[in-house]
Design a binder for these strands. Structure first.
Lengths: 228, 228
DNA sequence: AGATGTGAACCAATTCACAGCA
DNA sequence: TGCTGTGAATTGGTTCACATCT
């Protein structure tokens, strides 16, 4: 088949549910490539990713026809196609606001650098934390914590279009407004508040307490024991 | 209306999507109660929660009829009903495995204690971290980090049915197996691996890199700029 | 009058099952 | 023969619009 460079099935509209699973496939495939596995069936890849094979095939069909009938998928080829679709082949400068324990964890999380995310700025409002040098990235590179007032400068210097909010809840909306004003168009929010943003800005929220509460809900149903 | 103690609409099956939003409503309502707000309309509560009013009303209708037509919802009453439904009126002992930056952040995250979650154990495989006392909870209570070998003891002593995995990826499945063997039936996993568990165990996964990748995907579509 | 609660219509996502190709 | 890719059927979730009740 002639490899048409813009793929056939793809253009416009990959379902949101599919997008949310692509990073998982990408990670599993990367691991398979590292292990020297050259070919994988939808059944195998699905099992390793914790989904059904039908779901996996439907997901991949939205990207294009990258498998071979009767054989399976070439791991290296597929991992690249998914990376390209997700935009992992690009460089994504990221700024992180709030350098508490969570901010630290994010800054030196190994999974970022290997996927094109580069921490170009760490900001905090606490004067005692300014100047601290934090290892951010894979080998040895460090980033210095700067005062929150430098937010606009750091965003511009680094060319960041993605911001991560890891501040206490009361500070989050203000930080968000400043990020948006500085030109950031994607925000990952760890503060337990609902952010208000203009429609052109993408926001995702990760809430640690929420996840535990969902677990507790199901756990409760599992224990039909004590009453009042 | 006679307040039938098991509620009408509830029994069996609140949609998963609704369950995932209840913690948000709960937080917003708690904040409103703190501000002294006594009554709230679906329109107002929905706006503050970042959803549409129709969705909010449909969600709440799965719990029962807790509103008053022409008026709205009594904040205090509603916050209690949601808390009860989510199981937040109970005490949930939790063990956390892995006390790196993320584990630290989780241990002293204020949002837990106020919702019934109590950290009864902190475990780590790194000998240099054993014995460290970490503030876990709202006022002054500390928990000492214990060696990973004590996992079973800590789960039993604390009566924990919920475990949080904040270890590096390679250790996660082993820790998971031990938690399950010790009787834990709900697991919150921060390690970037797909865990294998028996069907009676509930698992939720939070993946920091995944969230950034989903953001990057949309960000990429927003910039129809550079080609190869 | 005014806001809830809900059937009905709509849309998105998953599952089924098999046609089509290597 | 064996596994992908995909229409068709099904399930789950959202939105609409209004009957219902305070």
């Amino acid at each position: 088949m002639p490899l048409s460079r813009a793929s056939d099935a793809s253009r416009r509209g990959i379902p949101e549910a599919t997008v949310a699973r692509l990073p998982v496939y990408h990670r599993v495939l990367t691991s398979l490539v590292d292990q020297g596995v050259v070919t994988v069936s939808s059944e195998e890849l699905a099992a390793a990713s914790g989904v059904t094979s039908a779901k996996l095939r439907k997901d991949l069909s939205h990207l294009g026809s990258y498998g071979t009938r009767g054989v399976g998928y070439d791991t290296e080829y597929l991992v690249y196609q998914i990376a390209r679709e997700l935009g992992l082949t690009q460089d994504w400068p990221v700024v992180i606001i709030g350098v508490g324990n969570l901010g630290h964890a994010l800054a030196n999380y190994g999974g970022f650098a290997s996927r094109g995310f580069r921490v170009v700025g760490l900001l905090d409002a606490d004067p005692s934390r300014i100047g601290e040098k934090i290892p951010a990235g894979p080998q040895g590179s460090v980033v210095e914590v700067r005062p929150i007032d430098d937010l606009e400068d750091v965003v511009h210097e680094g060319g960041a279009s993605i911001g991560v909010i890891a501040t206490p809840a009361p500070a989050a909306q203000d930080v968000c407004d400043r990020l948006v004003a500085a030109g950031v168009t994607s925000i990952l929010n760890f503060a337990p508040v609902v952010l208000t943003t203009p429609p052109h800005v993408g926001v995702r929220k990760v809430d640690l307490a929420t996840e535990l509460q969902i677990l507790a809900f199901h756990e409760q149903r599992r224990q039909p024991e004590a009453r009042s």
